[in-house]
C-alpha cells in the first residue's frame, strides 16, 4: 500500500495530486451512460424472446417495445464501442493499464480479499489499486470486450461469421452476451456500493482529486 511510485505524470502535475486524469473521468461517465442505455435496451430485446424462465420488468426496459429497444441498442452501441475503443487505446498507450492494473498475483488477490472481507482493506491512497480492484477492473474490461464481440457477431452473423464461430455458434454467442451483461450488472452493484462507501473515490472520479 505504502509503495507509491512516482510517475512522470505526477512529477509534471501540479502540487494538487490528480487521482483520475480528465480522459479517464470523461470516458468513465460516457461509458456509464452507454452501459446503462445498452443494459436497459438489451433487457427490452431479451424480453422478446427470453433465454430463461423470466423477463425483465417493463419499468426497467428502454424503448417501449422490441423495435424501440433495438433502435436504442444499435444507437448506444456506437457510444459504447467508440468510447470503449478510445479507452483501450489510451489505457495501453499511456501505460495506465500497466501501472494501475498490473501485476495481479494470486497471493495478492487472496490477501486483499481476506482483508476486504474483514473490513481491513485500506483506501488511504486512491492512486494505487489494491489487488481486488485490479482483478475486478481488469476482469470487467475483458468482459466488456467479450460483450462487444459477441454483440457484433450477433449483429453480423454472416459478414462476421468467423466471430460467431469463435464463440461456437449463434445461440451460444447469445448466451455469452447475456452472461457478460449479468457480470457487468453484478460489477455495477459492487462498484456503486463501494464508491458510496468510499465517497472520496467518487469525488476523484468527478473532479479528479
Amino acid at each position: 500500500m505504502a509503495s507509491l511510485t512516482v510517475t512522470d505524470e505526477q512529477v509534471r502535475a501540479t502540487p494538487a495530486k490528480v487521482i483520475q486524469p480528465a480522459w479517464v473521468r470523461v470516458m468513465h461517465w460516457v461509458n456509464a451512460l452507454a452501459m446503462i442505455l445498452m443494459i436497459l435496451s438489451g433487457w427490452q430485446i431479451y424480453n422478446a424472446s427470453p433465454l430463461f424462465g423470466f423477463t425483465f420488468p417493463r419499468e426497467y426496459t428502454l424503448g417501449g417495445w422490441l423495435g424501440g429497444g433495438l433502435l436504442w441498442h444499435f444507437a448506444a452501441m456506437w457510444l459504447l464501442m467508440i468510447n470503449g475503443l478510445a479507452y483501450l487505446v489510451t489505457g495501453f498507450a499511456t501505460g495506465r493499464f500497466r501501472k494501475k492494473l498490473f501485476p495481479i498475483t494470486p497471493s495478492g488477490v487472496l490477501r486483499d480479499v481476506r482483508a476486504a472481507l474483514t473490513f481491513k482493506l485500506g483506501h488511504d491512497d486512491l492512486t494505487v489499486y489494491n489487488y481486488v480492484q485490479r482483478l475486478l477492473y481488469a476482469g470487467i474490461i475483458v468482459v466488456g470486450v467479450l460483450i462487444v464481440l459477441t454483440g457484433l457477431g450477433m449483429w453480423k452473423p454472416v459478414q462476421l461469421h468467423w466471430l460467431v464461430t469463435l464463440f461456437g455458434d449463434y445461440p451460444t454467442a447469445r448466451y455469452i452476451h447475456f452472461f457478460c451483461m449479468a457480470a457487468i450488472c453484478a460489477f455495477l452493484v459492487v462498484h456503486v456500493v463501494l464508491a458510496l462507501l468510499v465517497p472520496k473515490s467518487l469525488r476523484a472520479m468527478i473532479i479528479g482529486r
Binding site: L40, R58, E59, T61, L62, G64, W65
Partner: peptide, 20 residues
C-alpha cells in the same frame, strides 16, 4: 404501433417510454 400502444396504455407510464 397498435399492439404496443394498447399494452403501453394498460401498463401506464414506464421508464422505457419516458427515457425514450
Amino acid at each position: 404501433p397498435d399492439v404496443t400502444r394498447r399494452r403501453f396504455i394498460a401498463g401506464g407510464a414506464s421508464l422505457g417510454a419516458l427515457t425514450l
